[in-house]
Amino acid sequence: MPAPNPKPIRTGRKPVTIASVDKALAVVEHLLAVDAEGVSLSRLAVDTGINKSSLHHILATLRQRRWVEQDESGRYRLGPMTGRMATWWTSANQAASMLHPVLLAICERTHELVHLGRLYERDVVYLDKVEPDRPVRVWSRIGQSAPVATTAMGRAILGARQPSAAEVETWVSLVPEASAELRGRLTEEMQRVQSHGYAIEIGEDRPSLACVGVPLAVAGVPVLAISATMPVERADLPHLRQIADVIHECIAAADVESISVPVTLAD
C-alpha cells in the first residue's frame, strides 16, 4: 500500500521558512544595490547581519551556482546568473503579461496609443500595445523594431542608462540617413530623462506623430520603456508632460514586482 501524501505544514501564525535559503536570498538582494566595485566580506556581514562564518559558506555556494562572483581583491558582486534572471523577466511574453494592465490604465486615462518596448541590441522592439477608442493615424505591430536614437522609448532607456559619448555616437550611427541635429537631440532628451523623468520626440521618427516615453528597470537595469503616441497637433510640451505624469502614476500604482522607474519625475 503506497504511503499517504504528507500533509502541508500549518503553523497558524506565519509561513515556514528555511533559514539558509532566506539568508542566501538576503545576500543576493543586498548585492543588487552594490556597484560594480563590489563589497568586502566584512562590510557585507555588517550590512546583512549575517555572521562571517555563515556568510562565507553562503557566498561559496552562490559563487558555485554563479549568482555571485569574487574579484582578485576578495570583493563580492552579483554574478552572471542574475543576468539570466533579468533576461527571463524581460522576455517578450513575461514583460507583456506583467505590464499589460499598466498599458490599459494609461490608455484609459490618456486616450492615446500606448506601447511597451524593450531594448534589443540595435533597436527598440515593440512588445505590446493598447489602442484607444478614438482613431489614431498610426500603424504599428507587436514585434516591430525602431531606431533607438529617434524614438521616445529608446531615448528614455538610454537616458536612464547614461551611455558614454562614444556610445551615443554609436547609437546615432545606427540610424539610416541620420540628420545633423540627431546627436544633439538625443543628448538633449537623455538629459530630460535625468532632469524630468521622461523623453519626447515630435515628428522625428514619423513626421505626423509625437511620443513621450518613460524608462523601466528590471532588477535595477533599464531595458524597457512605455510610451504614448499621438498626432503632432496634440503634442505641445504641457500635454506631453501631463501624459508623462500619468505613465509614472500608473506604473507606481501597479507596483509590479522587480519593475521600477529608474528616474524621478520632476515637479
Rank of each mutant, 00 (worst) to 15 (best):
K7L: 13
P8K: 12
P8R: 13
P8M: 08
I9F: 15
T11S: 10
T11L: 03
V21Y: 15
H30N: 02
L31H: 07
V34R: 00
E37D: 13
E37I: 02
S42T: 11
V46C: 02
T48L: 05
G49N: 00
A60E: 11
A60I: 05
R65I: 09
R66K: 13
S73H: 13
M81C: 05
G83Q: 08
A86Q: 14
A86I: 13
W88T: 02
Q94L: 05
A96V: 08
L99R: 04
C107G: 00
D128L: 07
K129S: 11
P135F: 10
V136I: 15
W139H: 12
A146F: 15
P147N: 12
R155C: 08
R155S: 07
L158C: 06
Q162R: 14
W171I: 00
V172T: 04
S173Q: 08
L174G: 09
A180N: 11
G184H: 12
E189S: 10
M190Q: 06
M190H: 07
R192Q: 14
I200R: 07
P207D: 09
V218L: 10
I226Y: 05
I226D: 00
T229S: 14
A235D: 12
D236K: 12
R241A: 04
E249K: 10
A253M: 11
S258Y: 15
S260F: 06
S260G: 01
A266M: 13
